[in-house]
């Protein structure tokens, strides 16, 4: 039931009243916009940031750098392995 792919936020809507109009995020994928609830997001995302979604709710906000940094780490992991045959940080 878990969706692993982060979705990019294109707009933040609502928020005029914390109780009756809590803000929601619009995310876009394949040209379709979907409204995502933010009650359980660790923080409210900025437009352009990513969210991980479960059952219509954002469960985690990822900065663009977060996503890219992690990708870079994974790439480095791969390269180091190719050169040295072991992961960075692994015991000698």
């Amino acid at each position: 039931m878990c969706l692993a792919i982060p979705m990019q936020v294109v707009e933040i809507k609502g928020g005029s009243d914390e109780l009756l109009d809590p803000c929601v995020a619009l995310v876009e994928s394949d040209g379709i916009r979907k409204e995502i609830r933010l009650e359980m997001a660790d923080r409210i995302p900025l437009v352009g940031e990513y969210v991980i979604i479960h059952a219509g709710f954002a469960i985690r906000t990822l900065t663009v750098e977060d996503a890219e940094y992690n990708l870079k780490l994974m790439r480095q992991m791969a390269e180091t392995l190719e050169h040295q045959g072991r992961l960075p940080g692994a015991p000698e």
């Binding site: 994928s29 990513y50 791969a78 190719e82 992961l87």
Partner: peptide, 19 residues
Amino acid sequence: MKCADEFRSRAITAPLVEE
């Protein structure tokens, strides 16, 4: 999506499998 494709690419998984 680009992000997901990178995590799947063989360049990353092949060395992990070898290790």
